[in-house]
Write a protein that binds this DNA or RNA. Structure first.
Lengths: 150, 150
DNA sequence: GCGACTAAGTTCGCTTGTTGAACTGACTCG
DNA sequence: CGAGTCAGTTCAACAAGCGAACTTAGTCGC
């Protein structure tokens, strides 16, 4: 009777949900993107229960989003670094950022924004069709069987 | 000692996580996007526990992502329709779709794709900077304080 | 060499959330 | 009148999340 797993469903959203649908997980990734690496850094940045943090980091490593790397031998200490897969996940967080900024502040504007590291310009993530560059509209898109590769 | 809420954190990712970080919730939204509206449609499409589905639909309505609308008077029956806020959430699901497709099928390609409703062309969502149209790279972006609007 | 400190977890008792299955109530249809 | 439909609710067992305290292996200041 354990929590239903989605990680073998034939749908990208379901599999992704299995990972980030976990409590705390997207926030851990956010911290990783903003440069945190060590257990205690994550812990104090998020104020998450240590046991939960342990479980999440273990899962993220198992999934190949983070890598557990020794940064000193004695006493043995490890830090958690983003892998390519983990870095690619930034796109999802950026989409969440945009949607959250647009729809989750009814009263005022959110106190934080994304900025270009060089120019300082405010950056607004947008989800588009790779081919056309047009904003992806729900109404124009449907879910379909993949074309057979044979 | 209840589950830590993120919905008043000053970060768009945190607030979004509070919503979609919930088990089942992104999948319910996916079903909503593919046209499901009724309680039993969601239930049988996902095979989710009915009690959980009730709780999630209630939450999504409270958050203004869905609307509970009577579609007949007697007996009173309700369906759940996407609001503008809910429709806007498609961007996040699209980003999850893309990332999941790219990184969560190690063995083969995913069996489902997004297609243009008219042309049938396969559509690949991409997260870009709204200004430049360039793919958003983690390394070029940082989190910063919002410019004061005064 | 002794006590305080540090980093990275683990353990524990308690509360909340999830699960599957069965049940309910108001109606309609044959 | 009995079966069926829809939109939930209820229940008991179990899993997961919570905060706080504890552990382990080493270093640093004195």
């Amino acid at each position: 009777m354990r929590r239903t797993r989605f990680d073998d469903w034939p749908c990208p959203i379901a599999r992704a949900t299995d990972l980030i649908g976990d409590w705390w997980t997207p926030l851990i990734m956010r911290e990783a993107f903003s440069g945190q690496r060590r257990f205690d850094e994550f812990q104090s940045a998020l104020d998450a229960p240590r046991a939960v943090l342990t479980a999440r980091l273990k899962r993220l490593c198992a999934e190949g989003m983070l890598e557990r790397v020794a940064y000193q031998q004695s006493p043995p200490r490890y830090e958690y670094r983003l892998t390519d897969k983990g870095r690619a996940f930034w796109d999802v967080l950026a989409a969440m950022w945009r949607w959250g900024s647009d729809w989750l502040w009814t009263d005022a504007a959110p106190p934080v924004v994304l900025k270009d590291r060089q120019t300082g310009r405010v950056v607004r993530p947008l989800v588009v069709d790779e081919q056309t560059g047009e904003h992806l509209d729900v109404r124009t898109v449907r879910i379909g069987r993949a074309p057979s590769s044979s």
